[in-house]
Design a protein around this nucleic acid. Structure first.
Length: 819
DNA sequence: CTCGCTCAGATTTTT
DNA sequence: TCTGAGCGAG
């Protein structure tokens, strides 16, 4: 991520020869970085503090392997946690070595495993077109099972069951293994084991893997079929893993399996069974792949998801002879920011001492602010953003972090009113929208007819008069005749339903069949690139799904239609980018995209995200908000072992994202679901030396004297009288809030449609106003437009209200009408 | 079977 | 505050 003193890659052509080529690779590296790039051996651990240039080191290491012809591209496997990081790494390696980079596997754990599983699935009872269940899908399945098993009577909620199963899978455990060591006299435990086993059976039956299975089943595959594993071991001679501190046990095991020596025979239980002439334990046919891992235990923030910090702390023990390189020089942040970070993380007792340092100088002081409410705090952020913008910093170089997604709301509201362009990373994902999930279910029903969940989902969408009762009847029929749910749909007349339901089922069956013929022609010939988009269109229109939405009078449904249009557009884009792409490829891509992946830094907007999402990113200016007890550290973390320490690391990750400016803010009161609660400053604040923080408004100021006016309160008062330091009071003139995402800057097709639905709540669209127009505002009454400034979504009307005085209003979202 | 109403519960982080 | 589940009426 940081490349500070390192030279710009790409200055030397791909064909340059070894020695010469290496000069530019190694130029500007400090001694530790140099070693990290050039060391050769079976195992290398690069302990890379925040901002120490680890991505650069990793990419140079790969480039250097390629340039010196130590490895073919196809022999390299580089693993990251997000597709975004993978894409970035690929780009940078390509920047250095050009075409030679083609053929490398640079991907996430999950996509690498999918690739392997698709190839090998037939080996153990799956087909290549298996479905990937995201957490929503598995929750839905578990929910159904919990109901069927009446497990809620034992206090087993779907959420709890899901997270327990996930944890167990991350440990490579399964229902049987768990049962062996569980207290089976406890009925709740017995039910849980049953649920777990049933869940797994259902997945298998549906030809589906959940997220955890992608990793776990790959490990299983390697262990059960050593000769399969060997093909991958022979292939990948250099395995590199980024963010190693966040690997869980299953991922650790996967790496282990991949880097094992190829023995040729002894790992195959059948081979040594008399037939083979080799002596046991002969020298390996091929030594294990060289393994490079990069990580920083201070940035381990995924323990809650099973990440095991020991994977990194015990690396030397696991891989004897491993070389360890420590990167401590930070090229990202100013010393003030680093000093704060060091002071905070120093309070974690179980860590190896590591002190980041910088030669960038102290830089600006950290700015602190305490608001009266989260709105007040948000206003501070918005004001600061504007002032930084005026001083020349682009919006895209600013980011706002928070602990929980729900905190984004107050920020969004204020940003919208202040006309600050922003972009939310994460939050509700586009493919979690109901209509998108429905569309996906239609596609899955075609790609993987065994997936009963998908077929059930679309059975009555749009309404076909097929309710729970009929659905169960179909399931029973399928069971009784030993056919799949999907197959049952193709014999509607045998199901014993009335004509209406029969017709509905027949129609669904016909649509699915037609789409199947488009996307997966029975003739076996390769469908044209546009087949996915075409098939999707057919599904949506001929199923009546779109018509039903269009006929609806729910205003949200209009937006849903638009979302689906966008989704079809995404499919077309996919066809353009992947001419050979099949429906299965498309579904894979959609299932594995994550929030952090579609970060788009060109769009010129401020980025809002959780601190978790922020990992691996950096910005000139960073705002860490909600620095309060019970938020960071989060209340729930207190109960978990190691919880508070992990929270501290999270905070550390947040503050080390900043290059030049760091802002820490909090609110004295926070409204959470209706009730207003009083918040306390986070303990982490006290861990930062007081001299480093320049408080614009300290917690003490806000507590003791009521002298300082709340910005938000001020602004809300119609008069907009004094107080607000930066004079932005009248930005608040828009009192009625629009939908939370109304103003979201739209850039790519992907982030365009997730937010359409809510955006419908208020959008004046192209309302044309010119000086002299009279308007009516829902709060301020009537007034006259003095002037209009700005463009497009950010057009601002300067209005002189008859009674409420002068206001600036964002035309697009203000509750106004022309009169 | 669908619709609309009421009420409870929810919010930690994510591939 | 918002969403989802549950219930009763048509």
């Amino acid at each position: 991520m940081t490349e500070a003193p390192l030279i710009v890659p790409g200055s030397v052509g791909p064909r340059s020869t070894g020695a010469q080529g290496h000069d530019d690779l190694l130029a500007g590296l400090n001694p530790q970085q140099l070693e990290a790039v050039t060391y050769r051996g079976p195992a290398l651990l690069i302990v890379a503090g925040a901002g120490s240039g680890k991505t650069s080191v990793l990419t140079r290491r790969i480039a250097s392997l390629l340039r010196s012809r130590e490895a073919w591209p196809s022999q390299i496997l580089a693993i990251t946690f997000t597709n975004k990081a993978a894409g970035e790494m690929r780009e940078r390696v390509e920047g250095i070595v050009g075409e030679a980079a083609k053929g490398m596997w640079i991907s996430t754990f999950h996509s690498a495993c999918v690739r392997i599983l698709r190839r090998e699935a037939q080996q153990f009872g799956f087909t290549k077109s298996f479905t990937i269940y995201d957490s929503g899908d598995s929750r839905a399945l578990i929910k159904r099972l919990v109901k069927e098993h009446e497990a809620d009577a034992y206090g087993l909620t779907p959420g709890a069951v899901q997270s327990r199963i996930s944890k167990l899978k991350n440990e490579l455990s399964d229902a049987d293994a768990y049962a062996r060591q569980a207290n089976m006299s406890d009925p709740a435990e017995r039910i849980f084991v049953e649920l777990f086993a049933d869940y797994q059976r259902q997945l298998q039956k549906a030809n589906a893997f959940d997220f955890d299975d992608l990793i776990g089943q790959t490990v299983y595959l390697f262990r059960a079929f050593p000769q399969v594993a060997d093909t991958y071991r022979r292939r990948f001679r250099h395995v590199l893993v980024d963010e190693y501190q966040d690997t869980n046990h299953a991922q650790y095991a996967l790496i282990h399996e991949l880097t094992r020596p190829v023995t040729g025979e002894s790992s195959d239980p059948y081979a040594s069974n008399g037939m083979m002439i080799f002596e046991p334990d002969t020298t390996p046919e091929l030594e294990g792949a060289s393994l490079t891992v990069v990580g920083d235990s201070d940035q381990s923030i995924y323990a809650f998801r099973g990440a095991d910090i020991r994977n990194i702390s015990e690396f030397e023990r696991d891989f004897p002879g491993a070389r360890v390189v420590l990167l401590e020089q930070n090229y990202r942040s100013t010393q003030n920011i680093l000093s704060a970070a060091n002071a905070v993380i120093g309070n974690n007792f179980d860590r190896k001492d590591k002190k980041l340092w910088s030669d960038k100088g102290d830089g600006d002081a950290i700015i602190g602010f305490t608001g009266y409410s989260q709105h007040d705090e948000a206003q501070f952020v918005a004001d600061e953003v504007e002032s930084l913008r005026r001083s020349g910093m682009p919006y895209s170089e600013m980011a706002v972090f928070y602990r929980t997604n729900s905190q984004s709301r107050a920020l969004e509201e204020i940003f919208i009113r202040s006309a600050v362009p922003y972009k939310i990373m994460g939050g509700t994902k586009f493919y979690e929208r109901a209509e998108i999930k429905d569309a996906l279910a239609y596609l899955v029903a075609v790609a993987n007819p065994a997936d009963e969940m998908a077929v059930r989902r679309i059975l009555n969408k749009p309404r076909r008069g097929i309710g729970d009762v009929s659905e169960s009847a179909i399931a029973r029929f399928a069971d009784a005749h030993e056919i799949t749910f999907r197959q049952a749909l193709s014999v509607p007349d045998q199901l014993g339903f009335g004509p209406k339901i029969q017709a509905g089922i027949a129609q669904l069956d016909a649509v699915l069949a037609e789409a199947t013929e488009i996307m997966l022609p029975a003739s076996g010939e390769l469908p044209p690139p546009t087949s996915v988009a075409d098939g999707l269109s057919v599904l949506l229109s001929k199923s009546g799904y779109l018509d039903a939405l269009r006929a609806s009078r729910d205003p949200q449904d209009e937006a849903r239609v638009e979302n689906l249009d966008e989704f079809v557009a995404v499919a077309r884009d996919f066809a353009r980018n992947n001419p050979e792409g099949t429906i299965v490829d498309f579904l894979t891509e959609v299932a594995l995209v994550s929030d952090a992946d579609d970060l788009d830094d060109e769009s010129g907007s401020v980025s809002l995200m959780t601190m978790h999402t922020a990992k691996g990113l950096e910005y000139d200016a960073v705002f860490v908000t909600g620095v309060e007890e019970d938020l960071i550290p989060h209340r729930i973390s207190a109960g978990e072992p190691g919880g508070p320490q992990e929270e501290r690391r999270l905070f550390y990750v947040g503050i080390t994202r900043a290059r030049k400016r760091l802002h820490l803010s909090l609110a004295m009161t926070r409204a959470q679901f209706g009730e207003v609660t009083v918040a306390m400053p986070s303990r982490f604040l006290q861990e930062i030396p007081a001299g480093l923080i320049d408080w614009r408004q300290s917690p003490g100021d806000v507590n003791s004297r009521g002298g300082t006016q709340s910005r938000a309160l001020n602004a809300r008062r119609a008069g907009g009288f004094g107080g607000s330091a930066s004079g932005s009071g009248d930005r608040f003139a828009v009192k009625q809030l629009p939908g939370r995402d109304a103003l979201k800057p739209l850039s790519t097709a992907m982030d365009k449609f997730p937010n359409r639905v809510t955006a419908k709540m208020r959008d004046n669209g192209d309302l044309e106003l010119t000086a002299g127009d009279r308007i009516r505002h829902s709060d301020f009454g009537e007034g006259r437009v003095d002037a209009v400034t700005g463009e497009g979504a950010k057009r601002i009307a300067h209005v002189r209200f008859d009674s409420a005085g002068q206001k600036k209003l964002l035309i697009k979202v203000a509750p106004i009408e022309k009169i």
